[in-house]
């Protein structure tokens, strides 16, 4: 029988997808892995997407190195 899930359909690049899979374990999101660049977030809503955005933001902040930091 066909299964139906409601939620958010996510599209991103492969590294981000891996990161999202990692985040989903921590935050206990139900992610369905579709392919390299697509994920489905079961029962996702605005607040879960906000959490995801925040996690990505933190990751990017950790990985940013600015030449101007030395100016300070």
């Amino acid at each position: 029988m066909v299964h139906v899930f409601k939620g958010l359909f996510l599209e991103c690049d492969p590294p981000t997808k891996q990161f999202l899979l990692f985040v989903s374990k921590q935050e206990h999101f139900e992610l369905i892995d579709i392919d390299e660049t697509h994920l489905f977030l079961q029962g996702g809503n605005e607040s879960t997407i906000a959490t995801i955005q925040r996690c990505i933001d933190e990751l990017q902040n950790r990985n940013t190195y600015s030449v101007f930091d030395q100016d300070k």
Binding site: V2, H3, V4, F5, K6, G7, L8, F9, L10, E11, C12, D13, T16, L20, I32, F40, L41, G44, I49, I52, Q53, I56
Partner: peptide, 11 residues
């Protein structure tokens, strides 16, 4: 970097 849309998935 993440695009999202409200959707329904069938499998």
């Amino acid at each position: 970097c993440v695009d999202y849309s409200k959707a329904v998935l069938y499998n």
